[in-house]
Design a protein around this nucleic acid. Structure first.
Length: 236
DNA sequence: GCGACAG
DNA sequence: ATCTTGTCGC
């Protein structure tokens, strides 16, 4: 019935780019079985990392960006990028296999005394066909709490959330609540968020709202998005 | 068999 | 994801 679990070390040892789609899907089932659900330590959050990947339109060059912000002041404490070639094509449901390798290279370049307390990824977490979106994959691999936030819906359906910041509606897929459609700003389009690793929906919602005050998307994700685009354009 | 499916 | 000008609004 349930797939065998996977440790961070075992996941890290996998050459993601060499997997066939069926093998990648099998790995995702194990990731889904290994992800942990727990409240984020909101009171003790000191730093939040945002992660994103920018794509070139003229080539298969990609740039991954990681930005670490102070959880309370939102000041940038550290940032790193890595540019490379996309080896895995974009396949719906297999985004992590395209983005994780280059994201890890950026991650390794980060110069921080302590790892960030939580990861906010541009993409899905459990709101995924196999409950193993990018945020689950990265959180498990890095052994850190993680949350996924996307600008467009992934799997599942939901009622429209109320019009005010903080309003949300559960996203249901296959009879299971897999995430939330959350309004982060009054009168603006909602974002779709779901749990990655070592998080739960309530605390993840609080984190997303706390980091998305001025704009629709959480500041860590915006910062990573902007950094990735800048570096990609500069051709570094 | 057909459609859905983050970036 | 990425391609793009203007436009409305704080």
């Amino acid at each position: 019935m349930s797939d065998p679990t996977l440790t961070a070390a075992e996941l890290a040892a996998v050459d993601l780019g060499s997997l066939t789609p069926p093998e990648a899907e099998a790995l995702q089932r194990r990731i889904a079985a290994s992800v942990e659900v727990a409240p984020l330590p909101l009171g003790g959050l000191r730093t939040v990392a945002g992660l994103d990947v920018a794509y070139s339109r003229t080539s298969d060059t990609v740039t991954a960006a990681v930005v670490v912000l102070d959880a309370t002041t939102q000041q940038v404490l550290a940032q790193a990028t890595a540019t490379g070639t996309a080896t895995f094509p974009y396949v719906p449901g297999l985004l992590a296999f395209r983005e994780v390798p280059v994201l890890l290279r950026a991650w390794e370049r980060l110069e921080v005394a302590e790892p960030p307390d939580v990861l906010v990824c541009d993409g899905a977490g459990r709101a995924h066909p196999r409950r193993a979106g990018l945020a689950c994959h990265l959180g498990l691999l890095l052994g850190l709490p993680s949350v996924g936030v996307s600008k467009t819906p992934s799997v599942g359906g939901h009622e429209p959330p109320g019009p005010a910041r903080g309003d949300w509606a559960p996203v249901v897929d296959g009879g299971e609540v897999v995430g939330r459609a959350l309004r982060t700003r009054d009168g603006t389009k909602e974002v779709w968020m779901s749990v990655g690793h070592r998080a739960d929906l309530d605390s993840a919602t609080a984190l997303v709202l706390a980091t998305a005050t001025r704009y629709r998307l959480p500041e860590p994700v915006r910062a990573a998005d902007h950094l990735g685009r800048r570096v990609l354009r500069a051709g570094v």
